[in-house]
């Protein structure tokens, strides 16, 4: 059984069909890429999985659970974490605090215990910090641990956002354009991290990415979208050479 399944999913914004009868399967352990020109509906697919949007028709399920029966804040408890195309961090908080919010789904104490800072709370906080510290080591975020997000460079924020998602120890990680706006060197790091996220941590990755160089290096499977509908899917090479895909990119004048 696939880890994530979309079946004939359609979403409309007024008259605009942002996602059109889309079906896809992401297998456990895969790195899966969604590609397509601007406005193809890639981020909208992520927002459907996060339950920010409800499709007009179709089914979305994760490891056998019907996602459409859940509220957005219940999705992470299944083990789905994500980043946003336009970086959505907690700007007034530090890097450490941001990563600790990633641990939210693993909390085990109640409000009263927390008010009194009982030993259970202390023990839990230690465990959270240990988990977060692993992520900090993994992503080389040590120099920024106690910096507020608001003063950090773009590239670092991008990494912090990946870190926050990893801190929740997900089964499925959704990355919306992880390399956009990054320098060549930063993109290279991102590539190794995505490889390690899959190999060492055993996390399945679904990502949206415009950089076909990166996609062909890290992804097993690619699905190309245009105007909300699937154009082609397969290995990166197959999709890149697919006539419909070439047509779509040339047609919009968008060089991939």
């Amino acid at each position: 059984m696939s880890l994530l399944t979309l079946e004939n999913v359609t979403l409309k914004f007024g008259g605009l069909t942002a996602v059109n009868n889309l079906s896809m399967q992401v297998e456990e352990g895969q790195v899966f890429a969604l590609v397509g020109p601007n406005g193809a509906g890639k981020s909208t697919v992520f927002n459907l999985i996060s339950r920010f949007y409800t499709p007009v028709s179709g089914k979305i399920s994760f490891a056998g659970t019907d996602l459409l029966g859940l509220a957005p804040d219940e999705v992470p408890s299944l083990g789905i974490a994500r980043t946003f195309q336009n970086i959505e961090l907690f700007d007034q908080a530090t890097v450490l605090e941001n990563l600790l919010v990633g641990r939210h789904r693993h909390r085990g104490t109640n409000l009263v215990q927390q008010m009194f800072h009982t030993p259970a709370v202390r023990a839990e906080e230690r465990a959270h910090r240990e988990a977060v510290e692993e992520v900090i080591d993994f992503l080389d975020l040590q120099p920024y641990r106690n910096s507020r997000i608001a003063g950090l460079p773009y590239g670092v924020r991008k990494v912090v956002e990946v870190g926050r998602a990893l801190a929740s120890k997900p089964r499925l990680l959704l990355l919306d354009e992880p390399a956009s706006g990054l320098s060549v060197e930063e993109t290279q790091n991102m590539r190794w991290w995505i490889d390690d996220i899959r190999r060492q941590m055993g996390i399945t990755v679904l990502m949206v990415e415009h950089d076909m160089g990166l996609v062909s290096k890290v992804c097993d499977k690619v699905l190309a979208l245009a105007d909300g509908a699937m154009l082609a899917q397969g290995t990166p090479a197959e999709v890149q050479s697919h006539p419909a895909v070439i047509e779509a990119y040339l047609g919009t004048g968008d060089a991939a």
């Binding site: 946003f84 959505e88 961090l89 919010v101 939210h104």
Partner: peptide, 11 residues
């Protein structure tokens, strides 16, 4: 700081 990502983290 961000309602949207608070939700995405399970808040």
């Amino acid at each position: 700081d961000s309602e949207i990502s608070a939700q995405a983290m399970g808040v």
